[in-house]
Structure formats: structure tokens, C-alpha cells
Design a protein around this nucleic acid. Structure first.
Lengths: 204, 204
DNA sequence: GTCTATATCATGATAGAC
DNA sequence: GTCTATCATGATATAGAC
């Protein structure tokens, strides 16, 4: 205890690195830019993180963890499907409002390196897997609570509606013609929009 | 006429470059790899395309053009909204089945360089703009053909449902656990799935 | 821990022979 | 047009003084 500013420099580095990596990806990021943003020089940067890879790994694992943790919300059991979706939408959209470039970053790096996917993070708890989700959907269908639907398509629908506007914001904003302010206002409205939309999709 | 193999080497370069740029993006692409894939050496590559930028521009403009052309399907006038969406889904999904990494590529490069957006390609024809689409949606709402909905949210929904599974395939495939074959089979089923889904969304 | 060199290496681009 | 060098630059990483 007492070491509040445990390592102020390391924190400054991590903040700067997160910003640069999220914005430009591993390939586009420059150690020089990270050092500049952190207010230090390259030598010191390498003192804290010996390689660009190790610094990247520190940033990626955090981002990947956030993405997966929220994805897993829909894998929770013991509550109705509509409620799962509602929670997931609210939590995810709040995260994204504060980290708009997070999903694009994680998806891109995962695309370049699919093996890296965190089997540690997901399926850590055997109750929180996609197949468990699929089973619970089938159960709700048989019980007549929701209309028949392929759980994989349902999952894609939910995730697409939430993530794409952020991942593809460059495209959407260009086509629709939106300022920053307008875009973020739309995203706030979108929380309610998606919830209504998806609940009608499954409601029988 | 007669010059069928007009410039065989240039074609080989363009094919190779498209593959590499789409897969790795501008920052991750290497001129060496493009040359190797085209079966030539770097010197010759630079003879055809003086700079990496100029080669990239050739690839990007084609990809961007494809993306925009299909986006504009939904901006067509004079046919009912449901039909517009149906056409867009079919055409876009067919394009994506053959170019799975195209949307991620275009979106990423557009994100790094939003100004580059092809105002030349879209809004070339004044009848094909988002605002014209928005107007036609409002008209259909007033006529009682479809239920009230913000045209911008509707547009995002359609585009998200179509594009995200491809853009975020790395994430989806990891979470759901899909082989190549399973993924592409799902994408084929998805065409019908999306059309039903979106038609119910707007149907009153 | 922090800095200033400097080493090392990869990459885009050019020069010049054929 | 095509190739084999080679250059020039920029980026990661290291060495060593303070």
C-alpha cells in the first residue's frame, strides 16, 4: 500500500500506447509516437517494454478482454433471452461510447493472427460458452417463449447491430453525412432502438 | 483490338497487390511480397508503379468503388423499400462471398484517411444520395406502407447485418467456433435470414 | 530511471546492365 | 521490359553516460 503512483511512467506509456495502437494498429503504430505521447524518449520506452511486441501484447490483451467479457453477457444462463440481450446492448454500447475504436482494433489484430484468440478468456468458465447459449435458445424455442431461429444467426444479428456502427463508422459517417456530435447522439438513441428491434425479432 | 494480353505483367501485379493489400492493409503490405506473388522482382514492380502509394491507390479505388456501388442499391428510387433491401442483400452478399476481406480493407483505410472518401463515387448522381433515401422512407411511412423508423437507424441496421459478419469474421468464428466451410454455409443461409428479418422490421 | 548516441536491420525506391 | 545491385531512409533495439 502507499504506492499509489506505483509507476507513473509505466502508466503514461500504457495510456499513450493504447491510444496509438487502437488508432493505427500494430503495423501503423510507431514507438517514436508512443514515446512522444507519453512525454518520454525511445530509450526509456524500451527500458519499460523491451520490444514493440511486448508493449502491444499488454495493450491487446486488455482490449481483447473487454470485448470478450461483454460478448459473454449473452452467454449468461438463468435469465430470459430478451433480458440477456438487453443487458448486453446497454453494457456494450456504453463501453463503445468511451472506446469507439476498440472493436475495430481487436477485430483487425485478430484477423491478422486468428490463433491468438483468447481461449483463456472465453470458455474459461464452461457455463459461459456459445454452445451453452445455443442450447438455452433451443430450450426457449421449444418452450414456446420465442420464435424459431438459428442461434448462430441470432448471435450474429445482435453483435452486428451493436458493433458495426462503430467498426464501420468511417463508412457510415461518410455516406450518411454525420458530424461527431450527430454520430454520438445517434449511438445513444441506438441503444433503445436495438433493444426494441431485437425483442420483436425473437418475440412470438 | 487484338491486344488481349494487353499488359500481362501489370495484370499479375494488380491481382497480387489486391490480395496483399486486402489481407494486410497498406501498413502491413510489403512491396517484396507483392512482387513475389506476381512472380517478378521489386525493380520491375517499381517500373510499373513508381510508388507504393500509387499502387495502393489503384487497388483502393476499385475496392471502394465496389463497396459504394452496392451501398447505393438502397438509394434507388421508384421501387418499394422492401424490394430495395432485398436486392441490396442479394447483391452485396454475393460480392462478399467472393471478396470476404473487402469491407474490412475499405473500412480500415477509410478510417485512417476519412478525407479520401470518394465523393466522386457517391452523390455523383444526385438522385442517389442518402437524403433522397431518407425522403423516400419518410414518404412510405406517411403512406402507411411501413412502420415509423429513423432512416439513419434503418440504414445502419441493413448495412450492419450484411457487412459485419464478414468484417468481424475473425471474432465471430472464434467465439462460435466455425470452420471455413461452416462459415460460408452460414453466410449463404444468411441471405434469406436477413431478408425475412428486415422485412418484418419495416412491415406494419 | 532517464537521457543521448549508435548499432542493426528492413523497406521503399533508384541506377544501370542486358 | 526485366533483371541485379545498391542507395537512402526510417524504425526497432541496444550501449553507456548521468
Amino acid at each position: 500500500m502507499g504506492n499509489d503512483a506505483e509507476n507513473n511512467t509505466e502508466q503514461k506509456i500504457l495510456v499513450a500506447a493504447e491510444h496509438v495502437f487502437h488508432e493505427k494498429g500494430f503495423d501503423g503504430a510507431r514507438m517514436q509516437e508512443i514515446a512522444d505521447k507519453a512525454g518520454i524518449n525511445k530509450g526509456l520506452l524500451h527500458y519499460y517494454f523491451k520490444t514493440k511486441d511486448s508493449l502491444f501484447e499488454a495493450i491487446f490483451s486488455v482490449g481483447n478482454g473487454k470485448m470478450m467479457a461483454h460478448l459473454e453477457t449473452i452467454f449468461l444462463l438463468e435469465i430470459p433471452l430478451g433480458e440477456k440481450i438487453g443487458r448486453m446492448v446497454d453494457q456494450y454500447m456504453d463501453l463503445l461510447a468511451e472506446n469507439p475504436s476498440l472493436p475495430r482494433f481487436v477485430i483487425n489484430e485478430l484477423s491478422k493472427n486468428p490463433e491468438r484468440f483468447a481461449s483463456k478468456i472465453i470458455s474459461r468458465n464452461t457455463l459461459r460458452t456459445f454452445s451453452a447459449f445455443a442450447d438455452s435458445v433451443q430450450k426457449e424455442i421449444k418452450a414456446g417463449n420465442i420464435r424459431p431461429i438459428d442461434p448462430r444467426q441470432l448471435f450474429m444479428n445482435v453483435v452486428s447491430m451493436i458493433l458495426f456502427p462503430y467498426v464501420g463508422s468511417s463508412l457510415i459517417r461518410a455516406v450518411v453525412g454525420l458530424t461527431d456530435k450527430e454520430f454520438y447522439a445517434l449511438m445513444q438513441e441506438r441503444k433503445a432502438h436495438i433493444k426494441i428491434f431485437l425483442n420483436e425479432l425473437i418475440k412470438e
